[in-house]
Amino acid sequence: MTPSWFAQLPVPPVRSPVRLERLAWPDAAHTLQDVLLLPVGAMEQHGPHLPLHTDTVIAESTCQLASALTGAPVLPALGYSVSLGHTVKWPGTFSLFHETLMLTVREIAQWAADTGWNRLLIVNSHYGNDAALRCAVDRLRHDLGGNLLTATRNTWDLTPEIAGRFTHDAADWHANEAETSLMLFLDPAAVVKERLSTADDPDRTMGCVFPHRVAHTSLNGVTGRPSLGTVEQGALLISRMGDALADLIQKARVEHPPLTWAP
């Protein structure tokens, strides 16, 4: 199944993504030697104009585009994750604790290893997941060793250029221009466009020593300038994100530890 937005990309891919859940097991077995992708998003408020599943759409879309470019298989996205910092001020946020996400990822990885995959790349689109996912990878590195090479990458900083696109209107960004542009392209029907012009809210975290919760730094759940978002910028940004992830997949396919060691 090819996402409808593929056709609107500057350079549309020539094949569909490999979505693992749509394969029968003999066909899934044909992907065992490839890099398995696990998108991780969130279910949380994204200001008055973006849907609650924004991070999940971005993670899944980046993986689907990279899969279409490389043929790497994609697992279904994890849509609940660590959104504690967004508090209960704005309805719609549902959060796991860090240890829950860590355990969930570790159990998925264990099944991947036991089934026969030996490379797993976790693709995250929610900042609050970063610490838990890095800890999960460190534990998997200890538990599984070379049986399953595992890494985590964040969609918003796959390259310095991409990172600059996310941070140009806010250092501690959320539901900002970049995310709004992406959603205007990926799922325009889910964006409440009439609220865009009044959704901007500045970054109030500059100079802070402590990591304050979003309810203490934003009036409406936004940090940045979503009013600047455009469909054209969203198409260009997701293209660059997909290309960057595809480059990582190609490297991950052939990477081995620089040295050999057996305990």
Rank of each mutant, 00 (worst) to 15 (best):
P73N: 12
A66R: 10
T70V: 05
K89M: 06
L65N: 03
P73H: 09
L84Y: 05
A109I: 01
W90S: 02
G116C: 15
R106V: 00
A68S: 14
L121M: 15
W111M: 07
S81K: 08
A113Q: 15
L75S: 03
G85P: 00
L96K: 09
R119H: 07
V88E: 03
V105L: 06
A66M: 07
D114T: 05
T93N: 10
T70I: 06
Y80E: 09
A109N: 02
G92T: 07
F97K: 06
L101F: 02
G79D: 09
L69S: 07
M102K: 15
A112S: 14
P73K: 12
H98E: 14
P76I: 00
S95F: 05
L78Q: 14
L84W: 03
F94L: 15
A68P: 07
T115H: 13
L78P: 04
H86T: 13
E99L: 14
A77S: 15
E107D: 11
M102R: 15
T87H: 01
E99I: 12
F97Q: 11
W111C: 13
G116E: 14
V88T: 02
T115R: 05
A72G: 07
Q110P: 00
G71S: 02
G71P: 06
G92W: 05
G79K: 09
T115C: 01
L84R: 12
T70L: 07
A66E: 09
R119T: 07
A68V: 00
G71Y: 05
L78R: 00
L69P: 13
E99F: 14
D114I: 00
S81R: 11
V82P: 01
V82D: 06
L75I: 03
S83E: 12
G71R: 02
T93D: 03
T93I: 11
M102N: 01
E107R: 01
K89S: 06
R106K: 12
Q110V: 02
T93P: 05
E99T: 14
E107N: 00
Y80L: 13
S81D: 08
P73L: 04
A72K: 08
L84A: 11
L69E: 11
D114V: 01
V74T: 12
L121S: 10
R106S: 04
M102L: 12
P76C: 02
D114G: 02
I122W: 09
L84C: 00
L75C: 13
N118P: 06
L78W: 04
